[in-house]
């Protein structure tokens, strides 16, 4: 089965190389979607042998993932797509464990869970916040997960055909549960490790980011 990693990246020239090195031994191809970075993100991605797609306008992580999935499906004929972060928070050696249920035909979607696995150096505030977000997701989507807004995922070709993010920014991470539920896709969770560093925390989702997600969800519901 052809495994393609899709990595959305925005201003990640410093961390992207490590992420690509970590993922590349475990996948057949890597697609980096440079979401209009102002640094040399695209250059780094090319240097490490990735397919590089450049958004000429910054559209957000959800849009970048969708672009990468479309490319992986249409051009690379991927059997499995793995969503992987550009900032080095995830471990490439956990990709085989993520794709395993799909290869065995046990699930259409595999969702990484840092609560089944390890969340290294996760701040207390974020722990509490993520627990609340997970509870919210369970109630709204009806999908029973232990972790939400975890970007480490694996999707089968069957799932890729059905999942299409319409929320461009971070709210796609909530939308995916609705799509899984709407299309009756089978899913399992697998333990993963997420490493937090000062750099990734600085760039990651903040409380204002959370408000932005809620705002996007409301906007999509009423005006989308």
């Amino acid at each position: 089965m052809k495994i393609v990693a899709v990595i959305p990246a925005f201003n990640e020239e410093k961390r992207l190389g490590a992420a690509l090195l970590s993922a590349s031994p475990h996948v057949d191809e890597i697609v980096v979607v440079d979401d209009c970075s102002q640094d040399k993100t695209g250059c780094v991605a090319r240097h490490f042998g990735a397919h590089v797609l450049t958004h000429l306008v910054n559209r957000g992580q959800g849009a970048a993932l969708q672009t990468g999935m479309d490319y992986a499906q249409q051009k690379l004929k991927a059997d499995i797509v793995v969503h992987f972060d550009a900032d080095g928070q995830m471990r490439g050696d956990e990709i085989p464990g993520m794709v395993d249920p799909i290869q065995k035909g046990e699930a259409d979607v595999v969702l990484g869970s840092r609560y089944l696995g390890v969340a290294e150096s996760m701040p207390l505030f974020r722990k509490i916040f993520m627990r609340v977000a997970t509870l919210f997701t369970r109630i709204v989507s009806g999908v029973s997960v232990t972790d939400t807004h975890n970007g480490f995922r694996a999707l089968s070709a069957f799932a890729i055909e059905r999942i299409e993010f319409s929320l461009d920014r971070m709210a796609h991470a909530s939308e995916i549960y609705e799509l899984i539920s709407a299309h009756d896709l089978t899913y399992v969770e697998r333990p993963v490790t997420i490493r937090y560093t000062d750099e990734t925390l600085e760039k990651g989702q903040s409380l204002t980011g959370a408000f932005s997600i809620v705002k996007d969800l409301i906007r999509h519901t009423f005006f989308g």
Binding site: G42, R46, H47, L53, T54, L56, V57
Partner: peptide
């Protein structure tokens, strides 16, 4: 943006466009 990105995708190791 997506259509353009896919149409203009660069293959691996195409360093001249770097």
């Amino acid at each position: 943006t997506r259509e353009l990105a896919i149409a203009r995708a660069s293959e691996p190791m195409q360093k001249n466009s770097c």
